[in-house]
Each structure stands twice: as structure tokens, then as C-alpha cells.
């Protein structure tokens, strides 16, 4: 079973609808046991970092997520769900994340309008054809995706960055480390291209 982690915020139904459109049944849950039993996990994202991490810790979901990632289960973090994978975030103070990807989450500079909202291009960073991310199969370099966020991730290890996007500065728009995938954009709101990514991810389950 593929689960969509419910941390009390955001429109999880959109993610569920999008998976359903490409043929995958999902369960929305905040039950750590269901997450433990899941074969595949999606951590979606809308809302504030602080509230999200607090919720995950209080519900003891954080441990299950880390265990699932370590166990090699396919795991997709979307937007805030990707940011939560990092060591810390500067959103509304300084807060610890799940720390599975060393690095931090920072605010865009004042020189650009915030939030970064709308369709922007992704550029693949990989330079070897053998190093192909399964969820980006059939996605062309420089495809457009829909973004809504005021904070961006900065990874200590550039190897985990699979694509970057330019908005005032160049930031990671997706990360990839084995079974662990993160996208800063919203595939569930990125029309055909986004649905393709979700379908590719579904196929790993």
C-alpha cells in the first residue's frame, strides 16, 4: 500500500487525486502503524515547517519515516515534504528536520518576489546517462513544473541534487538518493508532466 502522510495541513486530496488519475490507490493516514506497514510513502507538503515537524514528532511519525527510508522503501517528499528531509530549516526560526539529507532550508533573497509561485524550468544536473532517476523517466530536461514556496533547500552534498531551478538564485528543485526522492515543485499540479512523475514513482511500489 502506498500511503500519503497526513500531518494535519494542506490539501492531501490533490496528491491522492493525481495518483488515482495515473492508476494508483493511496491511503491518507497519520497513523504511525499504517506508515510502518506501508510499502511506499509520500510526504506531501503545504504549510509551515515548524508545525509540520512538530506534528510528525508528536505523533511519532518521524521515526517511522526515517526507518522506512533506511529500509529502502520508495519515498517521495513533495515541496515542504522534501524540505522536511533536511537537517534544519530557517523558516520562522531555526528548526530541526528529519536530517536524512544533510543541509538546510533557507528563505529566498529579498530581491525576488516571494513566494516563488508559478511555472518554472528544471535543469538536470547529472552528466552521465547511466545515472538516470527512475521518477524522471520520459521527462525532458528543461520541462516546466508548478512551484509555490518561499524557502529553498541547500544540500551539503551536491551529489543528491538531481535538478536545479533558477529564481534569483539556483536552487535544488529535486533530490535523489537511492530510494529517496524529493521534488520542490508540485507534480500533482503540474499537468501531464507532473502526473508522469507520479506514475513513474507509483511503478516503483
Amino acid at each position: 500500500m502506498m500511503v500519503i502522510v497526513d500531518y494535519g495541513m494542506g490539501n492531501l486530496k490533490s496528491v491522492q487525486n493525481a495518483f488515482s488519475e495515473v492508476g494508483y490507490k493511496t491511503e491518507i493516514t497519520d497513523d504511525p502503524n499504517r506508515i510502518k506497514e506501508a510499502s511506499t510513502i509520500v510526504l506531501p507538503g503545504v504549510g509551515a515547517f515548524r508545525d509540520a515537524i512538530k506534528f510528525l514528532k508528536n505523533k511519532k511519525i518521524d521515526k517511522e519515516l526515517i526507518d522506512a527510508i533506511k529500509a529502502g522503501k520508495p519515498f517521495l517528499g513533495i515541496c515542504l515534504g522534501m524540505q522536511l528531509l533536511f537537517t534544519y530549516s530557517e523558516e520562522g526560526g531555526l528548526f530541526s528536520g528529519l536530517n536524512v539529507i544533510p543541509g538546510g532550508v533557507k528563505r529566498f533573497p529579498a530581491s525576488v518576489k516571494c513566494p516563488h509561485l508559478g511555472w518554472n524550468k528544471i535543469k538536470f544536473t547529472h552528466n552521465s546517462n547511466s545515472n538516470t532517476n527512475p521518477i524522471f523517466q520520459d521527462i525532458l530536461d528543461e520541462s516546466y513544473f508548478y512551484f509555490v514556496h518561499s524557502y529553498y533547500c541547500e544540500a551539503d552534498n551536491p551529489q543528491v541534487v538531481y535538478s536545479t531551478t533558477d529564481y534569483g538564485l539556483v536552487f535544488p528543485s529535486s533530490i535523489w538518493k537511492g530510494n529517496l526522492f524529493g521534488v520542490q515543485f508540485h507534480p500533482e499540479k503540474s499537468s501531464t508532466q507532473g502526473l508522469k512523475i507520479l506514475k513513474n514513482f507509483g511503478e516503483l511500489s
Binding site: S14, N17, S190
Partner: peptide, 8 residues
């Protein structure tokens, strides 16, 4: 609409 439309 949310079930059928995948843009914001």
C-alpha cells in the same frame, strides 16, 4: 474539478 484537473 480537483479530481479531473491537474493545474492549480
Amino acid at each position: 474539478t480537483a479530481e479531473k484537473v491537474f493545474i492549480p
